[in-house]
Amino acid sequence: MYQFNYKKVETVQEAVNELSANPESKILAGGMTIIPTMKQRLASPEQLIDIRNIEELNFIREESNNIIIGSTTNHFTVSSSDLIKEKIPSLSMLAEGIGDPHVRNMGTIGGAISNNDPTADYPAACLGLGAKIKTSKRDLTAEEFFVSLFETALEEDEIVISISFPIIKNSFYMKFPNPASRYAMAGVFISKNESDVRVAVTGASENGVFRWNEMEESLSNDWSKSSVENVKLSPEGIMSDIHGSSEYRANLANIMAIRAFEGINE
C-alpha cells in the first residue's frame, strides 16, 4: 500500500471540510472495498477520512412509511434489525447475503452504494424499491444517484448521509452469487406497490445496475409468472468475462427474475 494520512472525524461537517480542503482525500467507511483496492495499489488517495465513528450516521428508523438507514450502518446491523425484518424482509435478506460475516461486520450501506460496483447488491434494492438518497448537499432518487459502472452523482466533497427505502413488503431479491467471490453474477430485485412494479438488475450490465423496463411493463400489465417468463433480457450490453458470457448472464437474469417473482408470491 502507498503512504497516506489517516484522519478520524466525529461529524459530517468535519468530513466534508476535510474533503474540500484536500481533493486527494477519500472517505473510509467499512474499508471492505477501499482497503483491498489500496492494498493492490489500484487506488492511492493522499488521505483517508474515517467516518465510521460519526454517531449521527449510524441509525435505522421508521419515518412516514419509509425505513431510513444511516450511511455507516453495517450490513450485519441491517440484516439483524427487527424493524427491517418486519417492514422490508427482502432488504434484510439481501444484507444477509452480502459477502461473509466478517465483511458484514465492517462493510456499510453508504460505502456499498457510493462504490456502485456493478455486481453489488444494495444498488439493486435502491432502484428496485425506489429509494431516496440523502447526501451532505441534496436529496437524490436512486435513478439520479447511480450513474454508471463505479460512478455515482456524488461530487468530490459530497458524502452520503442516509438512504430512505419506501416500505414495500411485496418485494424480493434473488442473486446468483459467483461461487468464489459471492458477488452477484446476476441479481434481480422486484417490488410491487399497488400498481407500481419495479424491477432492478445488478451484476449483469456493462453500465452497472439498471431498471429492466420491459419486465416492469410486462408485470404491470399482468402480474403473473408467465409475464416474467415471456420477457427475455437481451445479451447486448451485458458483461462478458472469464466467469460467464453475456448470453449466460442474460439467461441468469431471466431465471433470477422468475425466482424473485416466486419469492414474492410464496
Binding site: 473510509l28 474499508g31 471492505m32 461486520n105 467471490s181
Partner: peptide, 29 residues
C-alpha cells in the same frame, strides 16, 4: 490471501469477528 477472502486473519475487535488484513491498525484505536 491478498483478496480479503480466506479468513486466516480473523480476530475479534470489540467482540466482532473481522478480517484484520482489511483493516488499518488505526481503525482499531
Amino acid at each position: 490471501c491478498d483478496t480479503s477472502q480466506c479468513g486466516a486473519c480473523v480476530v475479534h475487535v470489540d467482540g466482532k469477528a473481522v478480517k484484520s488484513c482489511s483493516m488499518l491498525a488505526l481503525q482499531a484505536n
